[in-house]
Lab assay of single mutants.
Amino acid sequence: MAMNGTITTWFKDKGFGFIKDENGDNRYFHVIKVANPDLIKKDAAVTFEPTTNNKGLSAYAVKVVPL
């Protein structure tokens, strides 16, 4: 089920960042999981599918909501 969130941290040079989800949890995401990576920036609103990996909470099918 899709969730909403906000990008809180973005490491462009490393290709990953973190999203604060609607429950207040931080989720890892990688640029290859983003549909529109050219719009990635700190504080951008996103929708995504929540999941977990071996390191904890993460996100896939991430879409940055255009302003």
Rank of each mutant, 00 (worst) to 15 (best):
M1E: 10
M1K: 15
M1P: 13
A2L: 14
N4L: 09
N4S: 14
N4W: 13
G5V: 01
T6F: 13
T6R: 12
T6Q: 08
I7A: 00
T8A: 09
T8R: 10
T8N: 06
T8D: 06
T9S: 14
T9C: 12
W10K: 00
F11Y: 13
F11H: 07
F11Q: 04
K12L: 07
K12A: 13
K12W: 08
K12Q: 10
K12P: 15
D13S: 12
D13V: 09
D13M: 10
K14H: 08
G15F: 06
G15V: 03
F16A: 03
F18R: 03
I19S: 00
I19F: 03
I19Q: 00
I19H: 01
K20T: 14
D21K: 01
D21I: 01
D21T: 03
E22Q: 12
G24L: 04
G24P: 01
G24W: 03
N26L: 14
N26S: 14
N26G: 05
N26C: 13
N26Y: 15
N26Q: 13
R27S: 00
R27K: 00
R27T: 01
R27A: 02
Y28P: 02
Y28N: 03
Y28C: 06
Y28Q: 03
F29G: 00
F29N: 00
F29K: 02
H30C: 08
V31T: 07
V31H: 07
I32N: 15
K33P: 03
K33E: 15
K33T: 15
K33C: 14
V34R: 03
V34W: 03
V34N: 04
A35E: 14
A35I: 15
N36A: 04
P37Q: 06
D38L: 11
D38V: 08
L39P: 03
L39Q: 12
I40C: 07
K41R: 13
K42F: 06
K42R: 12
D43Y: 14
A44T: 05
A44G: 05
A44S: 07
A44D: 03
A44Y: 05
V46N: 01
V46R: 00
T47V: 12
T47S: 07
T47D: 03
E49Y: 15
E49L: 15
P50R: 03
P50Y: 04
P50N: 02
T51C: 13
T51G: 12
T51A: 14
T52R: 14
N53P: 04
N53G: 13
N53M: 08
N53R: 09
N53I: 07
N53Y: 09
N53T: 15
K55P: 04
K55C: 11
K55F: 14
K55I: 11
G56H: 08
G56D: 04
L57C: 05
S58D: 04
S58P: 02
S58H: 06
A59H: 02
A59E: 01
A59Q: 01
A61T: 05
A61M: 11
A61G: 10
A61L: 07
A61K: 13
A61N: 14
V64I: 10
V64Q: 02
V65Y: 10
P66E: 14
P66D: 13
L67G: 14
L67Q: 13
L67P: 14
